[in-house]
């Protein structure tokens, strides 16, 4: 696990921890895995209550959307090193292949550009092999503090 450089004020691991028993992310059971200067990786363990297709046992696409929304959102705060209220403006998710039933899905979100009002993000999700992703996302967030 990557440790935070000194002077950093936003801690994504602590942030996720506070949401473990609360709200949508708590209900999904999203876990913090690791982060870098402009990216955050989260994990979503397989859970039968998140199945989208009962015949195949494949996870619904919605939980993967939520995982990537959260990972990319945290990536912005990690990159800017400050917590600012923000909201998703838009998000596109390509579902490259079904996640394999039983496997944990890992989602890595990256913030590659922060403008005055908007932050630009992208990311990928995989279920064990980063070179064989299950989803790819691109999106934008808007800052709500009216700077």
């Amino acid at each position: 696990m990557t440790t935070l450089p000194t002077g950093r004020s936003f801690d994504p691991a602590a942030f996720i921890d506070t949401f473990r028993s609360y709200g949508h992310n708590g209900a999904l059971g999203t876990r913090f895995v690791q982060h870098g200067p402009d990216w955050v990786e989260l994990a979503l363990d397989y859970d039968e209550k998140l199945i989208g297709n009962t015949e195949t046992g494949v996870l619904a696409s919605g939980p993967i959307f939520s995982l990537m929304d959260m990972a990319t959102s945290l990536a912005i705060w990690v990159r800017t090193d400050i917590f600012r209220p923000q909201a998703t403006l838009d998000m596109r998710v390509d579902y490259l292949r079904p996640a394999t039933p039983g496997r944990t899905v890992f989602g890595r979100g990256e913030c590659y550009r922060v403008a005055r009002r908007i932050a630009f993000v992208r990311g990928q999700a995989h279920d064990g092999d980063p070179n064989d992703p299950v989803a790819h996302v691109a999106g934008t967030f808007m800052f709500l503090d009216g700077e």
Partner: peptide, 21 residues
Amino acid sequence: DAVLGRPGFLHGGAISGLLEI
């Protein structure tokens, strides 16, 4: 509680899940 995001608002992921279904 399962669809709650930041305090006072629905989670964007839950709204997306609803839209997809």
